[in-house]
Amino acid sequence: MQDLHLPDRRSIPLLLAVLAIAIAAPFMFYPLFLTKVLCYALFASAFNLLLGSCNLLSFGHAAYFGASAYIAGHTAKAWGWPFEASILAGVATAAALGACFGYLAIRRQGIYFAMITLALAQMVYFLALQLPFTGAEDGLTSVPRGKVLGLFELDNPLTLYFTTLLIFICAIALIHRTTHSPFGQILHAIRDNEPRAISLGFEANRFKLQAFVLSAALAGLAGANKAIAFKLATLTDVHWTTSGSVILMTLLGGLGTLFGPIVGALVVVTLENYLADSGLPIQLVIGTIFILCILLFRRGIVGEAQAFLQRRRGKAD
């Protein structure tokens, strides 16, 4: 849908500033709230990897996020697995699920791809409703947080925040590397002109599937992290409304930009927090923003800001 805008050398000061803010933030805001923002920012970045680089609109990313949350929560709670192992179990589950669903969904194009991912995710929702270990309507509660590397108690909010921040930075770096690697270039070539990429000898579907699995695994990383951080995995995590939220975060922030999903997640999570006590249904607000976003600013906050800066730069030159 749009070109990928990625940081060049000029953005290094910006990156450092963002990092400084991220380190200072937990001393000014609730670390637990910031942890939530980071989890959803990672989730949205994972989704953006698929939509921005491959133009594949997945309408069922909650499946990977939620399934991973359940598995991470269950392994930590019922089997007493350490933090790292639970997270890995969640990621592995999400990747496996992504491989199966991706294999099915890439058999159809465009709007059908979106419908298939939505339908497959609904299956995961029904499974979560019925499987014995998920706690059905109540969800999987009281998941123990455990210790990082067996040393640092994650029940300390600052430890939890900085652990999440570290995971987040590693994941974003991985996404950035991927989109800039030869693999990422091939994905862009397929996105821009699939028949041509195929005629050049690239097996388009194999690359799309790899991107899909990576995106699902990263969504799983976000879900597992969230389950441990909030000691909770619920049906909401696998519901289509969550798939919708992550789409909105990405669109609102700026599709195909590195920072867009992060900004979008910050805005949406903040909104949800404020609205939780207002009595105004979250759907009403989310739906309104969705409509405005599609009709008025499809480039999203970061995309519009970049366009504005480019116009200014263009005038200055």
């Binding site: 919708g244 759907q283 739906g287 309104t288 969705f290 409509i291 599609i294």
Partner: peptide
Amino acid sequence: LLTFGILTFTQG
């Protein structure tokens, strides 16, 4: 996506 926004809004 637009009709998804309409669905969400109407439900809300």
